[in-house]
């Protein structure tokens, strides 16, 4: 499902962000990517949704290879991948419902289907009651739930989370993690980049540790 073959990425000034990464993540897996800031966690995630391309090697996601993927295919791939971030990336001038609906509108989903899909997604993350609220009226945990609803509204096969609990209190973080695990039980690959090791202890899963662009540890699949 996700495969990295000898992937290297060099940014300007010879800064090696990823060094010869080999990695396979199969359908239904739940993976933590850990490591200090600047180790290459986000860079690795960005390769999965084809926001970055390797300088060497090949990234294969859901049958699309970074070596041959065409520019016009990228939107199609991204519709199968949900991404959430530490800063939620919600539109401030749209309410909860509109924020989730936006992801469907811009990809040409028919209007009558949008309402149903959005309400389902909001129910799944448990934030239906706040669907008319604006992001500034929500707590960090609630905002992240909205971001998750937006990420899963199209039922993606992969959900990427870049420091999803970085801006959220302990209780909220637990909720978010439970939510991600629940999404995973339906078969969606979940990849979380984090440096909050306490979360991992409470919810042990496969852990891949990166340092200076190299994988230094991979626990393998844990159930």
């Amino acid at each position: 499902m996700i495969e990295f073959r000898n992937v290297s990425k060099v940014f300007q000034k010879n800064w090696v962000a990823l060094k010869d990464i080999n990695l396979t993540i199969k359908k239904g897996e739940f993976v933590y990517i850990i490591g200090p800031s600047g180790a290459g966690k986000s860079t690795l995630l960005r390769h999965i949704y084809f926001d970055l391309f390797p300088d060497k090697g090949d990234v294969i996601v859901s049958g699309f290879s970074s070596l041959v993927v065409r520019k016009q295919d990228i939107p199609i791939i991204r519709r199968k991948i949900g991404v959430i971030f530490q800063d939620f990336k919600l539109l401030k001038d749209k309410n909860v419902f509109e924020n989730v609906a936006f992801a469907l509108e811009v990809t040409g989903t028919p209007r009558r289907k949008i309402k149903e899909l959005v309400l389902n997604a909001l129910a799944e993350v448990g934030i239906s009651h706040k669907r008319h609220a604006f992001p500034y009226q929500l707590s960090g945990g609630e905002q992240q739930k909205v971001a998750i609803a937006r990420a899963i509204v199209r039922e993606p096969i992969i959900l990427l989370a870049d420091e999803p609990t970085g801006n959220i209190d302990v209780e909220g973080s637990q909720e978010i993690l439970n939510l991600l695990k629940e999404i995973n039980t339906k078969g969606t690959i979940v990849v979380i980049a984090t440096h909050q090791l306490d979360l991992i202890k409470k919810h042990p899963k496969r852990v891949i540790k990166i340092e200076e662009g190299c994988i230094v540890e991979d626990t393998g699949v844990r159930h």
């Binding site: 949704y49 990228i74 791939i77 519709r79 991404v83 990336k89 936006f102 811009v106 990809t107």
Partner: peptide
């Protein structure tokens, strides 16, 4: 730019953006 970023993220085509 926030809205463009999200459009790109959720798979809006360039024309749609």
């Amino acid at each position: 730019k926030d809205s463009i970023e999200i459009m790109q993220l959720v798979g809006a085509t360039e024309r749609m953006i």
